[in-house]
Design a protein around this nucleic acid. Structure first.
Lengths: 107, 107
DNA sequence: CAATTATGTAACACATATGTTACGTTCAAG
DNA sequence: CTTGAACGTAACATATGTGTTACATAATTG
């Protein structure tokens, strides 16, 4: 879950919230913040490399869009372990054990 | 969402996963990792201060337990923004509908 | 072609995170 | 009451993140 690290920063959280409503180019995103534009450009790179957003080139603009699968992954992770804690496994245990074993390879 | 910062570290992610299965004391948790015990103690503090876990004193042990509400908050954050892109993506619609019925069982 | 616009990257400064070892505190057992 | 075990905290070193300014690149416009 490298995604959590990408969402740890409040600026990036706001960017995600913005992109959830509509696609936006980098300049339009940076205009919403008080920090410099290169700083936003870097935040966008972090989000891009973690798979939370992706960009397409439109002329001289870079339009960013949210990658829903990334947020979906977050949702599933939280939901899974919360459900596990609550003792409502409902056959998800096998899938969980499978996920755990693959994670052990990269600690 | 300060919780994302708490979950950003892979060690802390693993701790959460461990605590999802059963409550554990600090020593038992630390035994699973190669880093020093004080390092784990600090990770536990981060998780505690962000509300992800809480501890009770049992004799000379500190037993940690997961606070499901924290993970629920993460779930809600992600699912909130899912609502925006839900109608815009076709490929995921089916998968989401399938999950929706499972989710209703765990309120 | 030259100037402008939009954007990313480089280099650097500074803040925050994460690890270690040494030590303090609390509780249980003898 | 002394010893030891379990745990947290302090102090410090170093890695990682985040911000800035200066510059590079690519497309658009005059």
């Amino acid at each position: 879950m490298e995604v959590f690290a990408a969402l740890a920063d409040p600026t990036r959280q706001r960017i995600v919230e913005m992109l959830a409503m509509a696609d936006r180019d980098a300049g339009s995103i940076a205009a919403e913040f008080s920090v410099s534009r290169p700083a936003i450009s870097r935040h966008l790179r972090v989000l891009r490399e973690s798979g939370v957003v992706e960009s397409r080139t439109a002329g001289q603009r870079r339009v960013y869009r949210l990658v829903p699968e990334a947020l979906y992954e977050v949702e599933q992770w939280a939901s899974r372990y919360r459900a596990f804690w609550q003792g409502r496994l409902d056959g998800l245990e096998e899938h969980l054990a499978k996920t755990r074993s693959t994670r052990e390879e990269t600690p």
